[in-house]
Design a binder for these strands. Structure first.
Lengths: 361, 361
DNA sequence: GGTGCTGCTGTAACCGGTTTCAGTGACCGG
DNA sequence: CCGGTCACTGAAACCGGTTACAGCAGCACC
């Protein structure tokens, strides 16, 4: 069918006009007489001509694409992230390149490579080294998502530390719990680093002795099950575990209930993220909601604006919300609805979005 | 810093050679004397020159990218899918464009648009219309993943119908169950269509009356909870539910245990996919394993080969494996390990990978 | 000395678009 | 009748690479 690809010159020949005119028609720029336009459009239509993306991109010196770099962990968190980002990018006809760095040693080189092919880059916090981010930022617009980059690189994030502290205070002060453990690896990602910091801060604020070292496991459900084993092996069982995210919390929940413990009576469990499943388990999970999808969409918007030169390079600090359900020991709604709708009571933790960060030099 | 971008001509000037020589050195093609090579490399190194991707791509008439089109549902299934695909693509320095079509009316047009920017396209079954797939296949290499496309378009898939039939037979014949329900919408995706067909086939094979109409819900956990409600409202409660995938099965599990039912004593539940969580819940979920990640990787490999012109366009039918755990009523391992390791017994269902499908004309 | 390799290098044409700039003819006012 | 706009069009240069082809030494061989 399409033996030799249709070019703008071919269409020009067929329509009996110059390439400039074809370009003008297909882009709707410049002045073209109605009659000529029709003739060109007919030729385009008839032969199914579509301008070649590469030629156009080269001339415009724009790729029409942005990159998204993330570690590549499984689960709802990343699905939401990717979708939120993509849905925003597609609105501006920008395509999205993805790069999972997980477990690859040479990922920094790959990110640099990707930077040659896109107009902007969104990088998840902790996936590439700060040095590399700096190098990238010198090449093209970069936004860090969920984490913070070097000075001058805008970041979109939530106040993890404050949220984790509020959650921990709820357990310590409102429920009077004393022996809490943190499940998650603070070295694993900036998010966890901050949540661990908030966890400790809450202890400090209430003038309690500092907590034990964290149970260092990953962020997926099997990691939570593994953590549950460790908790159950303790000589003195903790009263509650504050998990770095919902998925590991669900793993802990499954692990300990599988061994006959009751939650929250025997052990209190909390999560972070408020993934859909959090509201559906028994007991429903007390957690912190962060609007992952919206966060990712914000990142995409910011990145596209910066890439288009139409925005200041400022960061964003997003609101979180403490979602109190049954797993912390708070009374559940009279009759747990099997639809899994969110349970009251729920208290709002942190308020407004606020512009933060600085403008790049 | 880089006020005007470095071009090959600029480097040629700086090294005192021609652009052809610079190109030869940076690509390692052709003959270049050792001394000249060193001089060029020094200029490249010194100024941090990197060939512009667009120029190179235009000259090579290759984008160096492939596209992945999927509906955009959340959950582990899609994360695995994306990662499996991406990890394979990155090996050949090919970048991956993603497109989530979910809930967008004009997605077919977007897919066509994406086709202009990539060397090949992997499309999840059921995400775009067969007509559009045909149109795409006329433009560039296309592989359908988990579903089948029009004749001539290679597909990578598993034998869902046979696997679902085997699973259903296990419940009907081995456990002697009679009142089974299917949870999932056969119109929602080709996978579900086939699983529903297998479910019915098993009834037919055993000369049992055909099953009730399916409980048409989506594939996510909340959908499963919704389905559980419907099951609980039945005048005569079914003895078991065969769910279209693990996530909805987990939703059903949560939904019914939250209402005090015991699984499998009061209700048998099975899933499909064998996501990690399936082994970790109580009781562990009887399901069918399909190697999603490997499936996606296969798809990427096939697509890249076809795009490089180095492979026949043949499809692949992947093996599945029936994973029998506790939720169907089979005895669990003596002591359920809290690590969530897979439980015996386990029976292999279907054997070898086999080349299927046809070569494109 | 002429001929034919061989190894290296450079010129210029391409890839497929966009865009600048210089026409061209029609029309208008003086 | 003439000069000046104005709407429209096309030739050619450009974006940043790759590569076909030709040219030029240097050398071996007849």
């Amino acid at each position: 069918m399409s033996s030799s690809r249709l070019t703008v010159r071919e269409i020009a020949r067929l329509a009996g006009v110059s390439v400039a005119t074809v370009s003008r028609v297909s882009n709707g720029t410049g002045q073209v007489s109605e009659e000529t336009r029709r003739r060109v459009l007919r030729a385009i239509e008839e032969h199914g001509y579509r301008p070649h993306h590469l030629g156009r991109a080269l001339a415009a010196r724009r790729h029409g694409a942005v990159g998204l770099v993330f570690p590549g962990l499984s689960g709802p968190y990343f699905s939401e992230l990717i979708q939120g980002f993509e849905s925003e990018a597609v609105k501006t006809r920008t395509s999205v390149h993805i790069l999972c760095t997980h477990l690859r040693a040479d990922s920094d080189a790959e990110v640099i490579e990707m930077a040659q092919r896109v107009d902007g880059l969104a990088v998840l916090g902790g996936t590439v080294s700060p040095d590399t981010i700096e190098e990238l930022a010198a090449m093209l617009p970069v936004v860090v998502l969920a984490g913070d980059g070097p000075a001058g690189v805008p970041a979109v994030r939530v106040d993890n530390a404050a949220a984790a502290a509020a959650l921990t205070r709820h357990l310590l002060a409102d429920h009077g719990l004393r022996r809490l453990e943190f499940v998650g690896d603070p070295n694993g990602s900036p998010d966890v680093t901050e949540r661990w910091a908030g966890f400790r801060q809450a202890h400090h604020d209430l003038e309690l002795p500092p907590p034990r070292a964290p149970i260092r496991v990953g962020l997926q459900q099997p990691d939570g099950v593994h953590a549950a084993e460790q908790v159950l092996r303790r000589a003195i069982r903790p009263q509650g575990v504050v998990c770095a995210n919902d998925e590991s919390a669900l793993g802990v929940l499954v692990g300990v209930t599988g061994r006959g413990l009751r939650v929250p009576e025997d052990l209190v469990i909390t999560g972070f993220d408020d993934i859909p499943m959090a509201a559906l388990v028994t007991p429903p999970l007390t957690t912190v909601r962060q609007p992952v999808r919206e966060l990712a969409a914000q990142t995409a918007r910011l990145l596209l604006q910066v890439a288009a030169g139409s925005a200041e390079q400022t960061g964003l600090l997003h609101a979180t919300e403490l979602v109190v359900r049954g797993s912390c020991g708070c009374p559940r709604s009279p009759e747990p609805t099997p639809t899994g709708r969110r349970h009251t009571p729920r208290s709002r933790h942190s308020g407004t979005n606020q512009a933060a960060s600085t403008t790049t030099p």
